[in-house]
Design a protein around this nucleic acid. Structure first.
Lengths: 210, 210
DNA sequence: GTGCCACCCTGACATTTGTCACACCGAACT
DNA sequence: AGTTCGGTGTGACAAATGTCAGGGTGGCAC
């Protein structure tokens, strides 16, 4: 283990990302910054809080789509259990609903993976000063899009209908009548302005409403 | 532009990857290897061949899911137009059908993004010696799975049905009768052992048959 | 040639899906 | 109290989806 000299005050970072190569690459790059130290790497969402409690990072860099637990849910838990740890969300797509939910979960920043890598270290330093770092264009998009029009039940039914589950399957899993399931799907289709459950599902995902 | 001394014979690499942060991180890491030089970076599939012809890389590192043109199709074109350039496929999921099609397209290697980053430089050096680098477990899976049972037309209809396109839409786009479209979908459903178009789509994608 | 087989294409029918009108319940306001 | 309103749940009907039986064509073995 290389123990070369490092600055007295280095920023402790927790990295949560499921794709191994991405995780490794980011850890290496961040580790090269003189003032940043990656103290923990995890590949699933359900160990984020544990890792944060044991390694006490200053910043948690969280992907959203993770096995086990969503990065957004993990952010909300971190706010309660490790309030000193600032959360920086790093996600593949800048869905308006994702940004909205990230802010509601107490995130200090929101980055998309499309941007240049240099943004990353800059953003980490800025959230530590108390700044909130968000792409301005994305912020306005999230505001103008408004909150999700879908009710909780409609979300449940949509999520359960993913991957081709039939109405009977969904009804059984959620303990509802088939008519009810069809009705919720119809409502979701109407609210998304689409023509069938598949389009509704795509649109809801696109907006980050699930 | 830093022009520090570099070894006389450095490996010239073309990097095709749509996610900006991943692309930048990989380029930086590869650039640190003493014998590797990233001579071109692209974010869409349709410029891969052009970039290869102008920059003459020794190895092309291609993602599969790319806007514009699939990395697999680009690999096939590279075999014709730049036969000296060895192709190394780098993809998110190790779908058996992807591996099969990569080999049929003349790829020299197949890596999944889950693995450690260190694999990458090693793989690049190995494909240059003429070796074919593939994860053995994945190779046996691809062999045991057999080739795709779907006919060309069935693939077309499945792909056109993605994202909730209705039968009428597909029929119009492919200049077919609605009955025909339904029949192809039914065949695909039967061959995939699923119950509706959505499950068939998911399964076919999972296997890399599209 | 003849048969065989795979693929492409189509129409008629049963099943599933989407729409609509309506009943129930709790919260908020008058 | 009554009233309104949004979310929830349900059954009857129309429209889309999935299944089946079958016709047409071209390649290939015999």
């Amino acid at each position: 283990m290389p123990r070369d000299h490092r600055p007295a005050k280095s920023i402790r970072v927790l990295l949560a990302e499921d794709q191994g190569m991405m995780r490794g690459a980011l850890a290496l790059l961040l580790g090269m910054e003189p003032d940043i130290e990656v103290v923990a790497q995890v590949g699933t969402g359900d160990v984020i809080v544990d890792a944060a409690l044991t390694h006490r990072p200053d910043v948690a860099l969280l992907d959203i789509e993770l096995p086990g637990m969503s990065g957004l849910d993990a952010a909300a838990e971190l706010r309660d259990q490790a309030p000193d740890c600032r959360v920086l969300i790093l996600t593949t797509f800048g869905r308006p609903g994702y940004l909205r939910r990230a802010m509601e979960a107490g995130a200090a920043g929101f980055l998309v993976k499309d941007g240049p890598v240099e943004e990353l270290a800059v953003a980490i330093r800025r959230v530590l000063t108390g700044e909130t770092v968000v792409d301005p264009a994305l912020a306005t998009a999230a505001l103008s899009a408004g909150p999700s029009p879908l009710t909780a039940r409609e979300c449940d039914v949509l999520k359960a209908s993913a991957d081709g589950a039939t109405v009977a399957d969904v009804a059984a899993r959620l303990h509802l009548s088939e008519s009810t399931v069809r009705n919720y799907l119809s409502a979701a289709i109407g609210k998304t302005g689409t023509r069938n459950r598949m389009e509704a599902l795509r649109e809801a995902r696109q907006q980050g409403w699930l």
